[in-house]
Amino acid sequence: MTKLLEINNLHAAIDGKEIIRELNLSVNKGEVHVIMGPNGAGKSTLANVIMGYPHYTVTKGNIIFEEDDITEDRTDERAKKGIFLSFQNSEEVEGITVENFLRAAKGAITGQNISFVSFRKELMSVMSEIDFDSEYAHRYLNVGFSGGEKKKNEIVQMLVLNPKLAILDETDSGLDVDAVRAVSEGINRFRSKNNAIIIITHNTRLLSSVEPDYVHILADGRIMRTGDKSLAHEINEHGFTSLPLL
């Protein structure tokens, strides 16, 4: 087992308000972790703190990625090291197509010049695998995309950039049944012994097709409980409030 991510006694705040406190998490290569929790528990904050969103301040603790302390790293440096975040609300960027954006991103991450022809081929094949109309490659980044289209576009980016750690923030919300299936197929295709996935969700829809190794319950900025898949089902049936320790 190779350790990929280690979060030690993490405290993070925004505008002086502490959102994450005393959080510890350890993720190995090959694992899928699910983080569940009620609204306002700090799930998205955790995702953005790992990605390095500058509005959050880490007040205590550290984040280690592949034995490297990344707590002070810029967002783009973290991305280059192999961390990816599938956003809950993807930004719309006018004037740059999905294809051109992603080719630039791949170039930045790999440090190589990406050939136009082979990249287009790769992108088209990835898009067709998750049932995403290739027409969207030529549209401006997320501009006018529906919620489901934005989520598919995030998964396309994950598959093309092939990170070591993918954090999926509410990737299943707002999707219809077909889109959930397409997205989970994408996730299963990505999953390998060489990478890890953290799925952040407040329901269990995605978990019927993506098998997790660990399920964590996040509440009040801490991980309150950790279990296996059965913990997710317990929550699905009884809700968060029924859990002991909460």
């Binding site: 969103y53 500058p54 967002t75 783009d76 991305a79 960027v93 954006f101 992603l102 930045a108």
Partner: peptide
């Protein structure tokens, strides 16, 4: 932030 999260400066 979104663009930087894809490795771009």
């Amino acid at each position: 932030y979104y663009i930087m999260s894809r490795g771009i400066s």
